[in-house]
Amino acid sequence: MIRTGRIIPAARKESITLAAEVIRKGGLVAFPTETVYGLGCDALNPEAVARVFEAKQRPSFDPLIVHVAEKAALDGLTQTISLSDHRLMERFWPGPLTLLLPKRARVPDLVTAGLPTIAVRMPSHPVAQELIREAAVPIAAPSANPFGYVSPTCAQHVADGLGERVDLILDGGPCQLGVESTIASMIGSRPELLRPGSITLEEISKVVGPVVRARESLTMAVPGRLARHYATHTPLTILTGHTVRSVRPLGERAGLLAMTAPRHGEQRYCAIEVLSPSGDLREAAQHLFAALRRLDAQGFDRLYAEPCDERGLGMAIMDRLRRCAEPLT
């Protein structure tokens, strides 16, 4: 078994062949998707799945998302697929939408945290697609980082966080979207948005009708829904109308995550990361996790984050910031 954690270029055919072999033999491969880098294994191999949890130090009650390259793979993973699910697949697959579906018994309980449902998506990134097809197995893959920390959006982030705990890292460059997939469920009495992402609530509603955003207490068994997640080591506070950028305790070394171009008062911060000078939410989402990592690496006393309008993709950005944030004491 390869245990080097080395980074290899995903553009080479031999890299995909090697990575697929590692997956089939029960190993772990970090690979790029359009959202973030995933830590992949054979979803039907319980020992390999257990290695993912061990490598990430991920609690067993947090289920994994299973990645497929074609709809035919769902036959071996799910019991039934509703008409609404089919419509969403037609509209958004391949892409950053995860669907919660009734699972078959052959799917290891560790993958689904013992639940009767399985989270499945079809990534659009060509490297992810090629790896799944070459491995010829569904790939279970949470984000390729230590549990609870900021998700990785480039190969070096994976190496910095997991090192020798991953057998191989496919370097496919920076991720295009930068936030994890949207998770939706058609299982209940009405369509639910379980985790916001690049596919917005409004876009889903156009396909299946009115969608409700599930209450936090009902989504704890969905990937990435713990109250504190995607978190920096440095305490982070989200600025509000009562805590403007220029007001912070004297003597505090702080960094600022700014949504738009800098304004007055920001000279009091030691470093500023601007997510989008023009205020474009897609650009902001793409840069979110990398910017948080850069600020976190500078050893400040506290980080401050500017909020954005919580509509469309702004809902996903604010969801990630809230799970990273700690209250100001």
Rank of each mutant, 00 (worst) to 15 (best):
A284E: 06
K206L: 12
D296A: 06
A10H: 06
D301L: 07
G178I: 02
P142C: 11
V166G: 09
R253T: 02
G241T: 06
N45Q: 01
G197A: 06
H242L: 14
L168R: 09
E326Q: 15
V137A: 04
L74N: 07
V68R: 08
Q57S: 12
Q156P: 01
Q57W: 13
A20I: 13
E21C: 02
L162S: 02
I272S: 00
L239V: 02
R165S: 14
M259W: 15
R282T: 13
D109C: 07
A221K: 13
A69P: 04
L131H: 09
T232D: 01
H86N: 14
P32I: 12
A10E: 07
I118V: 15
I139T: 04
M1I: 13
D280C: 08
R268W: 01
I238M: 09
A105M: 10
R268S: 13
P116L: 13
P249V: 05
I16K: 03
S82C: 01
E180D: 06
R302L: 13
M259D: 04
D75C: 07
I317A: 06
R323T: 12
F289D: 00
S124L: 09
R121H: 06
V22G: 02
G178H: 08
D296R: 03
S143C: 08
R311G: 15
L321Y: 11
L313F: 01
D309W: 08
A30H: 03
H233R: 15
K25N: 14
D109L: 07
A221Q: 12
A113S: 12
V207K: 04
T35N: 03
T35C: 07
P94Q: 09
R311H: 12
Q298M: 15
T200Q: 09
R320T: 00
Q79K: 14
S185A: 11
A227F: 05
L218A: 15
E202S: 10
S84I: 02
K103T: 09
S82T: 14
I199S: 10
P102W: 05
C324D: 13
A316P: 14
F53E: 02
E273R: 13
Q176D: 11
P32S: 10
G265Q: 00
